[in-house]
Design a protein around this nucleic acid. Structure first.
Length: 853
RNA sequence: GCGGGUGUGGCGGAAUGGUAGACGCCGGGGACUUAAAAUCCCCUGAGCUUUGCUCGUGCGGGUUCGAGUCCCGCCACCCGCACCA
């Protein structure tokens, strides 16, 4: 081949993508006798266009999948669409398009975009969760869970927009108001469907221990989320004569309780008969329902006038309604210990309640005042009668024992984890397969009536749930009594869809969700890759769903993802212009100029130089802002199609793998992708210099080639792509410098194989041009000769006073005494020593000598 | 607020407690060219009294012969918080 022919990505990409399709190179065969490897990336929501973050995610998985194939595995690497969800309904409302049409058009476009990147995917297993042949099986599984007693209904609160007559997602509530209507959001109670994830709390917690190949941080986050805590539940006697059960994880601090607080929904609060109390409860109901909002909101309380008797001191403690107490956790009522809980501290400060100290560093500190905040740490008990002097843990045990003796309560394990509410009052989701009948109650739909499909003729121009107001859809006969019934009009949370898609990828019979034996062949997923934002919800729900199916005997796997990797985001600089406005602060008479943000510009609108940026249109300078996650509102996005057009798929893929460690954020830069593109062409020139007939050996080069093959393999297996990239750069430089020889020719061919998982199009082109047989995608990973990995000479660092003074070369495995002698003989070392007395010499064989004076 | 993470040159980053800055980008200088692009070569943490020395991994302490790495205390930024996916 001619080395002056430039590599043309546009034609090569299409040619090889077509060749892989034709040969069905990436089709996974369940019946293969090879060891199986299931590589999976989190499937995308079809929002319209592939985001650069997807490109990064899927490129990582692709490199691993191609490498696994080269190392003799039968690889399952599928792709599909998490196709239900709110954006489709938003599009329907804004543009008047049907959610299904919008979603399917998006899928088609995004599939074409993924194909352009040359991913080694088995497209024959593609699935979309919005199609009845997927969600029909999901309905069947939901009915199975119901049979197993894992599904139930209960009242639960939602954000209600009184103008749009609709339930709002948390993200649709902005400052307590509906995002579209601007109306004040209310909390409203609805009967909703729940999955009993709490039945599996202990299992899900214990199971984390077996997930050694999950990041510690994700395991920790799930552990905290499940939140197992040992505490005490006991009852206060109220002034009205009733008993008020409270739950606390700090029973040791009971002598520090200075008031009692209940949630706004608590019966004690609801039972109050005064306008002031009702007003306060209404106030609590405004605003969002999220934990973050509740806990950052200003602490507010209402004194009910009721008092509670302290079980040991007999003191009367005031009972408040407090906006930071959650009805869903514990008993919905707490004993408040302001000295040792920050929320209680803030509340007590605001309402002038006492803040006694009951834990201190030592007994002498019993009278020490608080320094503006609660102290939640360890210490010994003080001012606590019979607990004085005890450590926190001992005091907990003691108080639980006493309360149990009194018959007033008991030690109790409480979980933070709550049951999973799966009801959504929306159209674009899986219909929940139940029928409401006046005589029979809630009746499961018969399995042979599945799939219960969504009606197509819906409109989104009127407020409210389209399923609820559809003229015919919900009317159906009761399967039990044959009388008039009404379909459930709630649909399932889209997290349900993503809780079993990895099973459907592995096995997709038409008549059932999956086949048990086929699941056993592929699961668990060997490597799962996705964003850290899914660390808790998606991954916990998928683990739960898998365990629930195993519990019912439908599958034999308990943990779906053997190894998890969470990749970082793709970020980009922001560009913006400023304008000067005249402002006047309240009370000031003069206006003064203030610089403020005018608008953001997209990277395509500007020219970036080393010291700034200017507008393409008129050369006006713009500000270069922080490097942040790409987002449409900040306009700092790059479109994968555009960059593939310009640089080709391989340069884009290479960029995704270069520099930044995969778990960290990757800053996109024009200069960076230019550099990658240059490297693609540089490699192409090197491949052009392949000479199959060259003679002669170059042992140093052989060694480096084998070292690099071994290292790159290790790097890919540990997903250290940036390190693999650096090693390939190094080897490329060495091969370029080497004289012609058989070693060099072999090195060039090996290099093509090393880059094949990362730059598959270039590699195929080179492979063919070198006259190699078949596709490089089908070729075996180069073998490593272990004898070539052993070094015979090493560089020894010589330190004096812990600082490097000299380096010397010594044979590998040289004796300590020899190294010491060589080090002391060094002229530079002698100069540094300057006659000082050598007190000690530390020798680390093959590494360094440190001389201590 | 609670939970989790990150912090090393101009930039992305590398470094089993053992030579800090591999590799890439940017920048500077040179070669080739009528010229440009492309390509190739060299230099590139800071400072200084420059055969070399000192400082330097967010900040302040500590352990160690030796700390980017381990320990304690801070700061800044990022992510999650149950109806976004």
């Amino acid at each position: 081949m001619s080395s002056d022919t430039r590599f043309d990505p546009a034609s090569a990409d299409a040619r090889w993508q077509h060749a892989w399709d034709q040969a069905q190179t990436f089709r996974a065969d369940s019946n293969s006798i090879k060891p199986k490897s299931y590589v999976l990336e989190m499937f995308p929501y079809p929002s319209g266009r592939i985001h650069i973050g997807h490109v990064r995610n899927y490129t990582m998985g692709d490199v691993l999948a191609r490498y696994k194939k080269a190392t003799g595995h039968e690889v399952l690497h599928p792709m599909g669409w998490d196709a239900f969800g709110m954006p489709a309904e938003n599009a329907a409302m804004e543009k008047g398009v049907h959610p299904g049409g919008w979603t399917r058009a998006n899928i088609e476009h995004m599939k074409a975009q993924l194909k352009r990147l040359g991913f080694a995917l088995d497209w024959s297993r593609e699935l979309a969760t919005c199609e009845p042949d997927y969600y029909g099986h999901e309905q069947a599984l939901f009915l199975d869970l119901y049979e197993a007693g894992l599904v139930y209904r209960k009242e639960s609160e939602v954000n209600w927009d009184p103008v749009d007559m609709t339930v709002l997602a948390n993200e649709q509530v902005i400052d307590g108001k509906g995002w579209r209507s601007g109306a004040e959001v209310e909390k409203r109670k609805l009967n909703q469907w729940f999955l009993k994830i709490t039945d599996f709390a202990e299992e899900l917690l214990d199971g984390l221990g077996s997930l050694e190949n999950w990041p510690d941080k994700v395991r920790l986050m799930q552990e905290n989320w499940i939140g197992k805590s040992r505490g005490l539940e006991f009852s206060f006697d109220l002034s009205g004569g009733e008993k008020l059960p409270v739950y606390t994880t700090r029973p040791d601090t009971i002598f520090g309780a200075s008031f009692v607080a209940v949630a706004a929904d608590h019966p004690v609060a609801q039972g109050l008969d005064s306008d002031a109390a009702r007003d306060f409860i209404a106030l609590c109901k405004r605003g969002g329902t999220t934990a973050a909002e509740l806990e950052t909101a200003e602490k507010l309380g209402f004194d009910t006038g009721i008092t509670a008797t302290h079980p040991f001191t007999g003191a009367d403690l005031p009972v408040y309604i407090a906006n930071f107490v959650l009805m869903d956790y514990g008993t919905g009522a707490i004993m408040a210990v302001p000295g040792h809980d920050q929320r209680d501290f803030e509340f007590a400060t605001k309402y002038g309640l006492p803040i006694p100290r009951v834990v201190a560093a030592s007994a002498e500190d019993a009278g020490k005042p608080f320094d503006g905040e609660a102290e939640a740490g360890e210490g010994v008990l003080v001012n606590s009668d019979f607990l004085d002097g005890m450590a926190v843990e001992d005091a907990k045990r003691e108080i639980i024992a006493r309360i149990e003796q009194q018959g007033r309560g008991q030690g109790k394990t409480v979980w933070r984890l709550r049951d999973w509410g799966v009801s959504r009052q929306r159209y674009w989701g899986t219909p929940i397969p139940f029928i409401h009948c006046d005589t029979c109650g809630v009746v499961p739909a018969p399995k042979d009536s599945l799939p219960i499909t969504l009606p197509e003729d819906v409109d989104f121009q009127t407020p409210g749930n389209p399923l609820l107001r559809h003229p015919t859809w919900k009317h159906v006969d009761c399967p039990k009594c044959g009388g008039k019934g009404i379909r459930e009009t709630d649909t399932l949370d889209t997290f349900v869809d993503s809780s079993w898609y990895f099973l459907r990828f592995a096995s997709q019979p038409a008549d059932k969700p999956f086949d048990k034996d086929e699941i056993a062949k592929w699961l668990p997923v060997e490597q799962y890759i996705g964003g850290i934002e899914h660390a808790i919800l998606h991954l916990l729900y998928a683990r739960f769903w898998t365990r629930a199916l195993a519990h019912m005997g439908q599958i034999d796997v308990k943990e779906p993802f053997a190894s998890l990797f969470t990749q970082g985001m793709v970020t980009h600089e922001t560009y913006y212009s400023t304008k000067t406005v005249q402002v006047r602060a309240e009370g000031e008479t003069e206006y003064r100029p203030m610089k403020t943000l005018d608008r953001f510009y997209s990277p395509e609108e500007i020219i970036r130089t080393s010291d700034g940026a200017t507008l393409k249109d008129n050369g006006a300078p713009v500000e270069v802002g922080r490097v942040i996650k790409m987002s449409k509102s900040k306009k700092n996005v790059v479109d994968p199609d555009t960059i593939i057009d310009t640089y080709g798929a391989d340069a884009v893929r290479w960029f995704m793998l270069s520099d930044s460690p995969p778990e960290r954020d990757l800053p996109w830069s024009e200069a960076g992708i230019e550099g990658c593109s240059r490297f693609v062409h540089r490699l192409w020139r090197l491949f052009g210099a392949f000479d199959g007939g060259a003679r002669g050996a170059d042992q140093a080069l052989d060694r480096q080639v084998h070292r690099t093959v071994a290292a790159v393999a290790e790097d890919i297996e540990s997903l250290g792509f940036n390190k693999a990239v650096a090693r390939i750069y190094e080897l490329t430089g060495a091969v370029e410098k080497a004289q012609g020889s058989a070693s060099r020719s072999a090195a060039v061919r090996t290099l093509a194989q090393l880059v094949a998982p990362m730059m598959p199009h270039l590699a195929e082109e080179a492979w063919a041009a070198m006259g190699q047989q078949g596709l490089v995608a089908d070729a075996d990973w180069p073998t490593v000769d272990p004898t070539l990995l052993v070094e015979d000479e090493v560089t020894i660092a010589v330190q004096h006073k812990g600082k490097l003074r000299d380096t010397l070369t010594a044979p590998k495995g040289a004796a300590r005494e020899d190294l010491e002698r060589l080090a002391l003989a060094s002229e530079k070392v002698q100069r540094s020593l300057d006659g000082a007395e050598v007190r000690k010499v530390i020798v680390v064989p093959d590494r360094l000598v440190n001389i201590v004076t």
